[in-house]
Design a binder for these strands. Structure first.
Length: 299
RNA sequence: GGCGUAGUGGCGAAGUUGGUUAACGCGGCAGUCUGCAAAACUGCUAUGCAUCAGUUCGAUCCUGAUCUACGCCU
């Protein structure tokens, strides 16, 4: 007996500036696919140039999902992403097309690909407010008494994760073991970029985006009511932009800092992807190899 | 030419009135990952304190010379 096969999806991952968005479009054209973006900042409306979002023109008519779906004033999370992504994948499959999930937020991609079922515990604002008064060390001690295993996993310094764990513990008694049974058959394609080339690409892209009006975009976001504080929370470009617009940084300092910080971010991305042994790595130029790999996978 | 001050890791910088492991920050490298993930967190990163010689049981810290930088004077 042949088991009913799982639906097939393709994942394209890689560091920022690697060229994965362009590849996703090319591939989608070739195999009649639609793209699902997996980027924790590109989900927000109005964060375009600074987040490196693909433009309408660059999409070449290929439908893109999970872009511009959240208000930047509010917080979007992995669990929302997973839910929406599963929904989008279902619809794409129903249309008889191939879902291509493409993005740089490893946690988001993994949640979908591995079908990570996060505990269904909503944010408890009151509890968070209360707990945030405590030091990480104190939070650790509290959690250790209730769920020592989880406490040890997180460590005594990571306040953010300790609070979330306590939130879960309060609702469920303990942090449940994580189950991930994939519901899709996934071909994971990674785009690897050599270190020096990556640095060059990051720099060139940064300058191009400044030319395209990245600074004006941030200014407009603030005028429309996005607080400086929230903008800084968004990290990288928006954090530096907020500081520059408030004259804490000159334009030159901003560029210098961003070059370094974006590179560091790219390292963190690589770190995440490195763990996933299912990813097949290619250089962006190896388009023929990628095409044939995809063809074989879909056959 | 004379006098003065300084010389610690890739960078910034603490320090010892001579004695096990040369603080810390940045950067770099490696890693963690159950609802903020562009986030949060962890580990590693100077057999050596400009060079050479001396004093001493022992010197990065004391002495002398040399080199370098800066300042002042002639």
């Amino acid at each position: 007996m042949k088991k009913p096969s799982k639906p097939k999806i393709i994942a394209i991952v890689g560091q920022t500036s690697s060229g994965k968005s362009g590849l996703a479009v090319k591939l989608a054209k070739k195999i009649d696919g639609e793209v699902i973006s997996a980027d924790s900042r590109q989900v927000y409306k109005g964060l375009n140039i600074g987040s490196g979002k693909i433009t309408k023109k660059e999409m070449l008519g290929v439908p893109h999902h999970l872009l511009d779906i959240a208000n930047p004033k509010e917080r979007f999370t992995v669990s929302m992403f997973k839910e929406l992504a599963d929904k989008a994948i279902g619809e794409i499959l129903a249309r008889g097309k191939v879902p291509i999930i493409c993005g740089g937020t490893g946690f988001y991609v993994e949640a979908v690909v591995k079908n990570v079922l996060l505990p269904d515990v909503p944010v408890n604002k009151k509890l968070r407010k209360e707990l945030s008064k405590k030091t990480a060390g104190q939070l650790f001690e509290i959690l250790k008494k209730i769920d020592p295993k989880r406490a040890l996993e997180i460590g005594k310094q990571n306040g953010i994760r300790l609070i979330r764990a306590l939130e879960i513990v309060k609702a469920l008694g303990q942090v449940p073991p994580l189950s991930h049974k994939p519901i899709y058959e996934t071909l994971s394609i990674g785009i690897e970029t050599e270190k020096d080339l990556l640095k060059e690409k990051i720099h060139a892209r940064l300058l191009a985006r400044i030319k395209d009006g990245m600074i004006a975009e941030a200014k407009k976001l603030h005028e429309k009511g996005l607080s400086w504080k929230r903008m800084e929370e968004l990290g990288l470009e928006y954090r530096a932009l907020a500081r520059h617009l408030r004259e804490e940084l000159t334009k030159e300092e901003m560029i210098e800092e961003l070059n370094r910080e974006i590179y560091q971010y790219a390292r963190r991305q690589a770190q995440w992807f490195r763990r996933d042994k299912n990813i097949q790595w290619f250089e962006i130029s190896e388009i023929e190899k990628i095409n044939s790999t995809v063809k074989k996978f879909l056959a």
